[in-house]
Nucleic acid binder design. Structure first.
Lengths: 349, 349
DNA sequence: TTGAAAGCGCTACCAG
DNA sequence: CTGGTAGCGCTTTCAA
């Protein structure tokens, strides 16, 4: 039975219910100082091989994991990044979130998720963010100037995802909405479409407005005046509703409908086909923005501007990490071109 | 200029760059003790009205927010819950995640997100979770028995989302896959379908296997022997691939195809229509599981078993919170019935 | 009701 | 390379 003694002690330790194993427990059992244990868990610290082995062995036996909370208290680095997403149910965001999470995780950073139900409400969320001492924030949501000022004052790195503040020196990765809109409009006009409908986004969306405005501007530039614009909400449902509103407003359906995002475009296509008995693209052309998964499905095969999500998330993470190391880096905006996806939902030239 | 003095001091404080405002700063400026400040931020603490007003005023001026990290170090409550999601790009999960996040947030809990790229890899993630002293975990991913034992040992509340361990006493909210499968199969058989294809999930998915096995078992019970089963991956692409594999294996297409989830079903429908020139449901009936957003789109109008996501997420959060208060609560499984969605992708009786 | 003091678990600095 | 010691910012006794 004597040979069981140490195993027994070990068990007792693990089972002292509620009580978690600390670096002191490891130190005591290994017969070294607590600082030594700490050093063994710090990469690149000056520890002898023997010491490290001894400590790690005991640590494993006891199931010791350093307490990240206590660590951040003193290092003032939580290794936490807040990700604010305004509307997770928009099918564009899951991919963004998955990638951000993956890339941050690869660099030893954890994601504290804040899913806003609307674009507003951000104030409560920010209070939480300050309390948790996150090292930085990636925001796919709109912030007010006051909120921006808070970031400035607290010296917290902030990178916007797809929110462009043209009059504000902030960090952001964006997709060039205007350029994408021009590309789509030019192709549609060149293919002979003469009347247009535009289904936009909700009032408070910058991205939505940019796409809508740029499309309208381009149409105007090219001398097309038969343009009917209605509001939407980035959803499948608003695609159908938008088609109906355009038809009412204009009297009949236009040659082409430009939708503010793919969800809306898909809704519009379904409404045209199954509600209005039209063929897409023969009777009406439909284009979208984003390049979400469902856009490539055979039922839709959407003509759209795909956002280079991989490069955008990589850019966002990179910019954020740089500024976590060096907060004095000047603000930077990275603008990515959209990738034209030549689908079959529009007659295009 | 004298009247500016205090404002000046205040500014100086806020701008002492990098330095964050602590309860000591507030205490000093308000002329009270640091403990008093602490108490003012603890709900239901014994503080005079005068004291609270005085402290809160200064706190607001200075932009003080209690440091949640320091707080958790001493209270041993981080107010953090880890949510593990195995495959965020499965369109079923964004809604789940959004709801979990919302409901936890309503109860003052923050979400630490862990998005696994596959169902495995969980070990590294768990180590992170222990380090961050989360108060509990919601897992929409598979864990090994060893990993389960770790939770037990550390007394960390754990609730599974849609992972049913029938031989293990764990907490879980699930949708009754078997019952759903029976319902679908019975309806298809009653409508006169005689040959069946089943497109299953990946090897390591419990939910996938349950749905597949239950469907096959029910078909067998009802005396149908013309059943072709192939594997899939929960994706749109595998729907098309599955249809092709079934056709090859069987020689021709069956009357009905049961898909392990909606994504697969949608892929199958598109492949049947656009690849094989078939009509759905006239030539082939297709059913799915989940009730994701796209399932209701007019193009598919899927016949499926919808999971009651709202009640499931509510249940998961409730069970977890209960166990955070009282860790000795016995394990509990809540099994929700799926809701039959009577779409038009299948001839159904 | 308030203030003083102890200490959560850890890292960082310092002698040795 | 190692051990001792001083805090990080907060909550929580305990006296006053």
């Amino acid at each position: 039975m004597v040979k069981n003694k140490s195993a027994q002690g070990q068990l007792d330790n693990s089972f002292q219910s509620g009580r978690v194993v600390t670096s002191y427990d490891v130190a005591r059992k290994a017969g070294v100082s607590q600082s030594a244990v700490s050093r063994c868990f710090k990469p690149g610290a000056s520890v002898s091989k023997k010491m490290r082995e001894k400590v790690m062995k005991v640590a494993t036996e006891l199931g010791y994991e350093p307490n990240a909370i206590a660590r951040s208290l003193i290092t003032k680095r939580s290794n936490l990044v807040a990700v604010i997403i305004s509307n997770l149910t928009n099918l564009y965001y899951p991919e963004v979130l998955a990638q951000l999470s993956q890339r941050l995780s690869d660099r030893g950073i954890r994601v504290l998720l804040f899913a806003l139900d609307t674009e507003s409400h951000a104030d409560q969320v920010l209070a939480q963010i300050w309390q948790y001492q996150v090292d930085g924030v990636i925001a796919a949501a709109k912030l007010t100037n006051d909120q921006l000022a808070e970031f400035e004052k607290r010296q917290k790195p902030l990178v916007f995802y797809n929110r462009f503040y043209s009059n504000q020196a902030v960090n952001a990765v964006c997709c060039d909405q205007a350029e994408g809109a021009y590309h789509l409009v030019k192709g549609l006009v060149a293919a002979g479409h003469q009347s247009f409908g535009i289904i936009g986004g909700p009032d408070d969306s910058v991205v939505g407005r940019e796409r809508t405005d740029a499309s309208a501007a381009c149409l105007s530039t090219m001398g097309t005046s038969d343009v009917t614009i209605v509001d939407g909400s980035f959803s499948y449902e608003c695609g159908g509703a938008g088609v109906e509103m355009i038809r009412e407003k204009r009297g009949s359906l236009p040659d082409a409908i430009i939708c503010v995002n793919d969800m809306t475009a898909i809704g519009a296509i379904d409404a045209l086909r199954y509600g209005h008995g039209k063929n897409v693209p023969e009777d009406v052309s439909v284009v979208g923005f984003d390049g979400v998964g469902p856009a490539t499905w055979a039922s839709f095969d959407l003509t759209t501007m795909r956002q280079p999500v991989g490069r955008m998330t990589e850019g966002a993470v990179e910019m954020l990490m740089e500024r976590m190391e060096n907060p004095d880096l000047p603000p930077e905006k990275r603008l990515f071109a959209g990738v034209f996806v030549d689908g079959t939902s529009a007659v295009f030239a």
